[in-house]
Write a protein that binds this DNA or RNA. Structure first.
Lengths: 342, 342
DNA sequence: GATCGTCCATGGAACGTTCAATGTGACGGA
DNA sequence: TCCGTCACATTGAACGTTCCATGGACGATC
């Protein structure tokens, strides 16, 4: 093999190349890389970083992970079936999660469960060192995924409050308080005849929202008749909204459990020739993009998605770093968005 | 240190432990793991797999990646701004992508670009060995991301057709053909007065859909007056739909550019007291979940999301394995979904 | 009986990084 | 002079796997 084209397959530039170029040792480069500033002087920092720049060095994550046992990846569990109207919200949340993770130099790995072994993936991902921690959304109070993760001592955080006997690694929205604000606004504007429409399903947050409305109205001394409350699928919502608005003594304000439901109700009201915001007030819950494309825009309780993502990521990292996290669960307030619909 | 609690920090079970338990060498275990069946007998396969089972062995991905230079991860680029109605579709697509990837033992890493350096992330992910390949959706014909990836010799695949001078690593939907089918159905049912409503934006697929409608109607000898064509934002759609339906000589069929637009138009029609599917036909494009929650369900051209995801992943893996892929771009037909709206 | 090919299996080295321990020179106090 | 301390820098080993070259057994062929 004489006369060979030497650099037929050039080696990737690694930490040793940087070390050589900067005239220091491997470990020093590593220290600079990991910001252990008590171990190097300002002068060496300069030498090392400029050598990195010159060589176009990028640390190899596989090697870092192998040695340090940290992946800088967070798993996000996404349901395979989620085909309802919550899609807009879910995507928005995912986007903000990716953003929040990248702000602390982490990536998001999206995964679904296998049908035959719903919980297996969770453990596999960690065992095989694909992720450091897992974020679960739409968790229930007695979430089996959370329980499994806790039992397996896998760092995790849930979007959705957890039962007291579970580790309190959760962040959630104060649905009751959010509805309280919404009701207060409506009452302040003089509304007296209310109705509530929401999606079906027994998720606690759906129940909480209704509950918040009921309680707050009671507090104001306003009656919410049984017949004016309905939770069901989209078609049912549509039918019931029409029924309510065309019946005798129709509600002047319809509070709904989500922006998606509100959008449907707004359309029904339009179809009846009613001016939304004037003839009838309609409110939503979410405060996402959907509320901006309806006409008029929705008055709603905005869920602080960005903050939630940040907090979830923080909770994960604390567990990864300290092996535990004693921070209690976090209940975040919503922010009232005043649109034209109320 | 006598009398020590020996297993205070037990070593993770690795390939050597399996080898020892099975009475074979490391490499043999590795061969079994990677399915190199020409290198081991059925008997050793048995021994090895049962040893793995017994020890609960999970291969360490970091080590595998480091040595083999393969991550079994695919990057998916997601826009930070995507706040329009396409959210439902995007999430659906992501789900199917995760599924398609996991069918070939790969994971999906979701990432966004940094505002200051939109293309940097693409290269970084590959250089740092976070992903093997990248999937780009909503690509334009002259997509700069695609060009960058091609120049950087990074394996990739686009959802959206690419210019001929770019590598043809793309899969797309035949929008024109899809609309052809839709129009054919409407014409067959005797419709003569048409209108077209679609979202604004100059993405080629939006133009293609309109184009498909125009051409096919011409083919049938049906006129589509300029005044009956409109592309614009949601509010504009709503206004124009009302205008069309209440004007003199209203269209009997409204073709729309997407299920999202169709849903809006359906609502407008409802609001005017029209029976959708009887008084006026309305069609969509996507065939996703949205078309099922409207009432009546939408007649639409279904985009074969699952197939698209599979093909995209396949294209990526071919490039990763062979260093290249000469397969041409793939234009997939839609599938006509007959709902009650037409 | 030497040679070859096939089948299965093995051990050394390497992937690129961080951990853990050790070294060095300067400085100050006893 | 000796020792301890501090600030900075270095070296050997390890992480857990796959690549690569080689080895032995066995049967077939010359």
């Amino acid at each position: 093999m004489p006369g060979g084209g030497a650099d037929r397959q050039r080696r990737r530039v690694g930490i040793v190349d940087v070390a050589a170029a900067a005239g220091v040792s491997r470990q020093t480069v590593s220290n600079v890389l990991n910001g252990r500033d008590e171990y190097y002087s300002a002068a060496t920092y300069e030498k090392v970083t400029s050598a990195m720049q010159a060589l176009g060095y990028q640390p190899n994550r596989a090697a870092q992970t192998l040695r340090s046992r940290r992946t800088t990846q967070i798993g996000y569990h996404i349901f395979g079936e989620q085909l309802d109207r919550a899609q807009g919200f879910t995507l928005h949340f995912l986007q903000s999660l990716v953003k929040a993770a990248s702000d602390v130099d982490h990536q998001v790995l999206v995964f679904t469960h296998r049908r035959d072994d719903p919980l297996g993936v969770f453990k596999d991902l960690v065992a095989r060192q694909a992720v450091d921690a897992i974020i679960v959304s739409e968790s229930t109070v007695e979430d089996e995924r959370a329980r499994f993760l806790a039992d397996s001592r896998i760092p995790f955080a849930c979007f959705g409050r957890l039962a007291p006997d579970l580790p309190q690694h959760w962040v959630d929205v104060d649905n009751t308080a959010g509805m309280r604000e919404v009701v207060d606004v409506l009452v302040a504007e003089g509304h007296q005849r209310f109705a509530y429409l929401g999606a079906d399903g027994d998720q606690y947050w759906k129940l909480d929202r209704l509950d918040g409305v009921v309680r707050r109205l009671a507090h104001h001394g306003v009656r919410l008749p049984k017949a004016s409350v309905f939770r069901g699928p989209d078609q049912g919502i549509r039918r019931r909204a029409r029924q309510l608005l065309t019946g005798k003594n129709p509600p002047s304000a319809i509070v709904t459990g989500s922006d998606a439901v509100a959008a449907v109700v707004v359309n029904v009201a339009h179809s009846l020739g009613l001016r939304v915001g004037t003839d009838v007030a309609i409110t939503g819950f979410d405060g996402g993009a959907l509320g901006l494309v309806t006409e008029p825009t929705l008055t709603s309780a905005r869920i602080p998605v960005e903050r939630i993502s940040r907090e979830l990521v923080t909770r994960c990292l604390r567990q990864v770093e300290h092996g535990r996290d004693d921070e209690p669960g976090l209940l975040l307030p919503t922010e009232l968005v005043r649109g034209g619909s109320a």
